[in-house]
Deep mutational scan, measured.
Amino acid sequence: EPLWIRPDAPSRCTWQLGRPASESPHHHTAPAKSPKILPDILKKIGDTPMVRINKIGKKFGLKCELLAKCEFFNAGGSVKDRISLRMIEDAERDGTLKPGDTIIEPTSGNTGIGLALAAAVRGYRCIIVMPEKMSSEKVDVLRALGAEIVRTPTNARFDSPESHVGVAWRLKNEIPNSHILDQYRNASNPLAHYDTTADEILQQCDGKLDMLVASVGTGGTITGIARKLKEKCPGCRIIGVDPEGSILAEPEELNQTEQTTYEVEGIGYDFIPTVLDRTVVDKWFKSNDEEAFTFARMLIAQEGLLCGGSAGSTVAVAVKAAQELQEGQRCVVILPDSVRNYMTKFLSDRWMLQKGFLKEEDLTEKKPWWWHLRVQELGLSAPLTVLPTITCGHTIEILREKGFDQAPVVDEAGVILGMVTLGNMLSSLLAGKVQPSDQVGKVIYKQFKQIRLTDTLGRLSHILEMDHFALVVHEQIQYHSTGKSSQRQMVFGVVTAIDLLNFVAAQERDQK
């Protein structure tokens, strides 16, 4: 057995438009009618409502009807409940999964919650491996369901041993009777949507819809739904939504950006999952974080739909894509998950301010006199920076000697690579993860907040409520011999709460 199987392995699926269902090699399930009293909570997966979006479509000038398939009504709160249950049931049916076995899954959280929910009911041990950027709410729900959680670096490539995929496979090879159901490759993922989600949409719309818009992560949702719609409703256009920084969209030119990270969760990847059939997507749109969270908040405030950030991405694209539809036509959007997962993220004004998705003037509360002053007023001194090749031991000596707790790590040209902190280095040394002679590049981390000289002290204040420091950066445009230009970030300084307090105190003292 291989040590790991690539999540982007070539698909062996034989589905073709027009091929009889009787030739399918898979076990198919028909939607079942729910009894009045459910035998367990797993029976509350599927049969989610279709809700008309009344205000947002009109606000953006849509002539067509805009409908939302509300997947956050599933038992675990997301569309991923469907595939989690289906993968477990299919693994039980073919004898792969037996009582007492362990389920391991690399996930952005929602599939993990679905699997942990099913594992709690069915009696399996469950280990979820997820990147650090995923919300604390997801972690809390997983723990409450009895799952064990392993976190991995957000910026690790999918084929790196440190990625959530790599760590999951390492655990599988170490733990007896453990299984990775593997949402990236498992046919049960798109089949769950082909058999149930798509049929529900067709039934709820009486077979009449002209466009379907869905955000894409593993691709199982859009693949399964689109294949069924292509068979039953061939005139329906399928629109895929991919965040900026991901590479799922086609044509490839759409993916060209210097951005590699994004805040919206559960969609987009740096590889093409095996289950994603991009041939059934008629057109791709890219979405960005700001519009995703703005539209998610709009869905909550104006439509009462308590959905997550990827739902915002989907609707932001839908109001663009559906401009081509006329009166009497219908566009369906998939709202994948609930706001429950993001209470401390985009639902929080403070978080939105820190990330730059909300401006101070958007909030009406009274601010102190210094709130709208610029960061450049602080008069920061030149920063202490270190090269990635310097040793951890030497870096600790320098920081202690100069009285700093942290320093930016830059390359020879001064471009920011990340940050090192005294606390992080000492804990890594004590844990045996690094040696004093190791290069400081081994303990770089990139989960820090950046701020510009033109940003306000109010925004800085919000950042420092949650973080010990902020890195002050400025952009530099560099022209190359080819005539092309590129933008790079340079370090201007490091600012802490002490710097802000000293500035405010000094100004008030001078005024007296």
Results as ranks from 00 to 15, higher is better:
residue 367 K to A: 12
residue 500 L to P: 12
residue 448 F to M: 06
residue 491 V to S: 01
residue 423 G to M: 01
residue 473 V to F: 12
residue 291 E to N: 12
residue 400 R to P: 10
residue 480 H to G: 04
residue 279 T to P: 13
residue 456 T to V: 12
residue 485 S to V: 04
residue 418 G to H: 12
residue 373 L to I: 10
residue 509 R to L: 13
residue 355 K to L: 12
residue 412 E to H: 15
residue 401 E to V: 12
residue 446 K to T: 15
residue 413 A to C: 11
residue 242 D to A: 04
residue 436 P to F: 11
residue 368 P to R: 15
residue 505 A to L: 01
residue 391 T to D: 01
residue 345 K to T: 06
residue 331 C to M: 14
residue 320 K to N: 13
residue 415 V to F: 12
residue 321 A to L: 14
residue 367 K to L: 12
residue 271 F to E: 01
residue 263 E to Y: 12
residue 334 I to P: 01
residue 422 L to Q: 03
residue 255 N to C: 08
residue 441 G to E: 13
residue 382 A to V: 12
residue 308 G to I: 03
residue 413 A to P: 09
residue 480 H to K: 08
residue 294 T to A: 15
residue 329 Q to V: 05
residue 467 D to K: 07
residue 342 Y to L: 05
residue 431 A to Y: 06
residue 421 T to E: 08
residue 492 F to T: 15
residue 474 H to Q: 14
residue 315 V to G: 07
residue 363 L to Y: 01
residue 295 F to A: 01
residue 486 S to C: 12
residue 479 Y to T: 15
residue 264 V to Y: 01
residue 385 T to W: 06
residue 419 M to E: 05
residue 457 L to W: 01
residue 339 V to I: 01
residue 404 F to N: 01
residue 496 T to A: 12
residue 432 G to R: 09
residue 261 T to S: 15
residue 446 K to W: 13
residue 438 D to K: 15
residue 461 S to G: 13
residue 419 M to C: 14
residue 255 N to Y: 08
residue 498 I to Y: 11
residue 451 I to P: 12
residue 469 F to Y: 13
residue 314 T to N: 06
residue 287 S to G: 13
residue 352 M to R: 06
residue 252 E to A: 11
residue 246 S to A: 15
residue 319 V to F: 14
residue 475 E to I: 10
residue 341 N to D: 01
residue 468 H to F: 12
residue 248 L to H: 07
residue 441 G to I: 10
residue 245 G to Q: 01
residue 301 A to L: 11
residue 447 Q to L: 11
residue 402 K to C: 08
residue 427 S to L: 09
residue 251 P to T: 13
residue 306 L to M: 10
residue 353 L to E: 13
residue 271 F to C: 01
residue 264 V to A: 07
residue 472 V to T: 11
residue 252 E to R: 15
residue 364 T to Y: 13
residue 471 L to K: 04
residue 314 T to L: 01
residue 443 V to G: 14
residue 418 G to V: 03
residue 344 T to L: 05
residue 280 V to G: 12
residue 331 C to L: 09
residue 469 F to L: 10
residue 339 V to D: 05
residue 346 F to A: 04
residue 389 T to S: 08
residue 325 L to T: 06
residue 488 R to L: 14
residue 454 T to C: 11
residue 421 T to G: 01
residue 383 P to R: 06
residue 388 P to V: 10
residue 463 I to K: 14
residue 288 N to M: 05
residue 511 Q to G: 14
residue 407 A to D: 01
residue 447 Q to R: 11
residue 354 Q to P: 05
residue 327 E to K: 10
residue 287 S to T: 11
residue 320 K to Y: 13
residue 437 S to R: 11
residue 391 T to K: 04
residue 453 L to S: 05
residue 426 L to V: 09
residue 421 T to M: 13
residue 453 L to D: 01
residue 399 L to V: 08
residue 494 V to D: 01
residue 469 F to E: 13
residue 277 D to L: 06
residue 345 K to C: 04
residue 421 T to W: 04
residue 441 G to F: 11
residue 478 Q to K: 13
residue 503 F to V: 13
residue 433 K to I: 07
residue 430 L to Q: 05
residue 465 E to L: 12
residue 475 E to C: 13
residue 239 I to W: 04
residue 293 F to H: 06
residue 450 Q to Y: 01
residue 302 Q to G: 06
residue 379 G to Y: 15
residue 469 F to R: 06
residue 426 L to C: 12
residue 480 H to A: 13
residue 352 M to P: 05
residue 239 I to K: 06
residue 405 D to V: 01
residue 487 Q to L: 10
residue 411 D to W: 10
residue 326 Q to W: 08
residue 242 D to I: 01
residue 314 T to E: 01
residue 259 Q to L: 13
residue 240 G to N: 01
residue 271 F to W: 04
residue 347 L to W: 01
residue 422 L to V: 13
residue 398 I to V: 08
residue 363 L to V: 08
residue 311 A to G: 09
residue 292 A to L: 05
residue 416 I to D: 10
residue 466 M to K: 13
residue 279 T to W: 14
residue 457 L to I: 11
residue 437 S to I: 10
residue 318 A to I: 01
residue 348 S to Y: 05
residue 274 T to C: 01
residue 489 Q to G: 04
residue 411 D to G: 08
residue 373 L to A: 15
residue 503 F to Y: 07
residue 422 L to Y: 05
residue 483 G to L: 09
residue 430 L to N: 13
residue 286 K to I: 01
residue 435 Q to S: 11
residue 402 K to W: 01
residue 510 D to T: 11
residue 256 Q to K: 15
residue 333 V to W: 01
residue 495 V to A: 14
residue 454 T to D: 01
residue 278 R to P: 03
residue 409 V to S: 04
residue 258 E to I: 11
residue 429 L to D: 14
residue 303 E to S: 08
residue 482 T to G: 04
residue 387 L to I: 13
residue 398 I to F: 13
residue 425 M to C: 15
residue 390 I to N: 13
residue 286 K to P: 01
residue 288 N to L: 11
residue 367 K to V: 14
residue 314 T to S: 13
residue 493 G to Y: 13
residue 501 L to N: 07
residue 302 Q to D: 12
residue 446 K to S: 12
residue 454 T to Y: 15
residue 324 E to N: 15
residue 337 D to W: 04
residue 391 T to S: 11
residue 335 L to G: 01
residue 432 G to H: 14
residue 404 F to V: 07
residue 413 A to M: 13
residue 492 F to L: 11
residue 318 A to Y: 01
residue 372 H to Y: 11
residue 482 T to M: 11
residue 498 I to E: 13
residue 239 I to T: 01
residue 296 A to M: 06
residue 271 F to D: 01
residue 238 I to T: 15
residue 372 H to T: 13
residue 432 G to Q: 01
residue 413 A to Q: 12
residue 409 V to C: 14
residue 472 V to C: 09
residue 396 I to C: 09
residue 405 D to Y: 08
residue 348 S to C: 04
residue 359 K to F: 09
residue 391 T to E: 14
residue 390 I to K: 01
residue 262 Y to Q: 15
residue 345 K to Y: 01
residue 426 L to W: 06
residue 270 D to N: 01
residue 390 I to C: 09
residue 357 F to D: 01
residue 499 D to Y: 05
residue 374 R to Q: 05
residue 376 Q to R: 14
residue 485 S to K: 01
residue 444 I to T: 08
residue 477 I to G: 06
residue 353 L to R: 08
residue 369 W to G: 13
residue 257 T to R: 05
residue 414 G to M: 01
residue 363 L to H: 15
residue 394 H to F: 11
residue 387 L to E: 13
residue 300 I to A: 01
residue 424 N to W: 15
residue 406 Q to W: 05
residue 421 T to L: 11
residue 293 F to V: 05
residue 300 I to V: 06
residue 444 I to R: 12
residue 384 L to E: 11
residue 466 M to A: 09
residue 330 R to C: 12
residue 461 S to C: 14
residue 360 E to A: 14
residue 411 D to Y: 10
residue 373 L to F: 10
residue 362 D to T: 15
residue 256 Q to N: 14
residue 303 E to M: 08
residue 373 L to E: 13
residue 393 G to I: 11
residue 477 I to Y: 15
residue 402 K to H: 11
residue 512 K to E: 13
residue 476 Q to F: 11
residue 480 H to M: 09
residue 285 F to P: 01
residue 471 L to F: 10
residue 448 F to I: 12
residue 248 L to D: 01
residue 270 D to C: 06
residue 291 E to F: 08
residue 499 D to K: 11
residue 265 E to N: 01
residue 439 Q to D: 01
residue 296 A to D: 05
residue 416 I to L: 11
